[in-house]
């Protein structure tokens, strides 16, 4: 594959980087990244990966755009309220870069569909919004051996870690399963500063691009935490856990299953 004149112009600020160059750009164009969840984290990740020239971007989401999403899910615009998130996201990624091959999956990630989807991809971005889905992505990526970026945001805090399954610390090495339902803060108490999704989702996209290009140091075995109020970024070194139920010495989880969804206890939850 060689770059066209238009591509050389479009990606010139990448190509001029010694560590990327034409070869690196061609690698990106031949790469496939899957984004699970077209929400706060998936939005900036999708936009930047499309702009960067990642050749194939898959997007999984079963939801429609809600007015309360727009405060942070910047891939969706006011006119998209009510539309399928995957369609809205696809349209914006193609508007930025019509060369992108966008594959859409209008479904919720579940134990019976996720492995088939992720096995076609080089890297996965976990942009899901609940614990059941986060453990599912972690486990599915482990079984399929697909590297991924895990992230979470809450109030003024965000964190992310990159996992090379079977080689580096996974989500279950740190948290062996979802928290008890009664411990999960209800939606009305929680909330999130919208721009936090932009910070953390963009960092996830950075990790994807670094992985695809083999550049720099990935956030493997390292949780990066960020607090928007103190503006502190901290790296917490996390070793693999020999007692991890998934990737430890005596794994208890040997096949993919859905964790019970931890739901809000409020009747009028708007999440």
């Amino acid at each position: 594959m060689s770059l066209t004149d238009k591509q050389i112009e479009r990606y010139s600020r990448h190509i001029i980087l010694e560590q990327v160059g034409g070869t690196g750009q061609e690698k990106l164009l031949a790469s496939k990244v899957l984004i699970i969840g077209a929400g706060g984290l998936g939005a900036p990740a999708g936009l930047y990966l499309a702009a960067a020239g990642v050749g194939t971007i898959g997007i999984v989401d079963g939801d429609n755009v809600d007015l309360s999403n727009l405060q942070r899910q910047i891939i969706h615009h006011t006119a998209d309220v009510g539309a399928e998130k995957i369609r809205s996201a696809e349209a914006k990624m193609l508007a930025i870069n019509p060369e992108t091959r966008v594959k859409t999956y209008k479904q919720w990630a579940k134990a019976d569909n996720i492995r088939e989807i992720i096995r076609d991809y080089d890297f996965v971005i976990d942009g899901t919004d609940n614990f059941a889905a986060k453990f599912l992505v972690n486990d599915a990526c482990f079984f399929e051996k697909v590297p991924f970026s895990h992230a979470g945001i809450l109030r003024f805090d965000g964190q992310l870690i990159t996992v090379l399954p079977g080689e580096t610390t996974c989500y279950r090495c740190v948290f062996d399963g979802p928290p008890p339902a009664n411990a999960v803060a209800s939606c009305s108490q929680a909330g999130v500063l919208g721009v936090l999704a932009g910070v953390i989702g963009s960092l996830q996209a950075t990790e994807a691009i670094k992985y695809l290009l083999g550049l720099g140091d990935l956030l493997t075995g390292t949780l990066l935490t960020y607090n928007a109020l103190s503006m502190d970024f901290r790296k917490v070194c996390l070793n693999r856990n020999p007692q991890c139920p998934l990737c430890g010495e005596n794994p208890k989880i040997t096949e993919l299953r859905d964790e019970e969804q931890v739901v809000c206890d409020l009747d009028n939850c708007e999440c």
């Binding site: 919004d129 979470g152 809450l154 928290p179």
Partner: peptide, 13 residues
């Protein structure tokens, strides 16, 4: 000692 917190995600938790 590191306290590590569960953090939900892009939407509400």
């Amino acid at each position: 000692v590191e306290f590590l917190y569960y953090m939900g995600g892009g939407t509400c938790l």
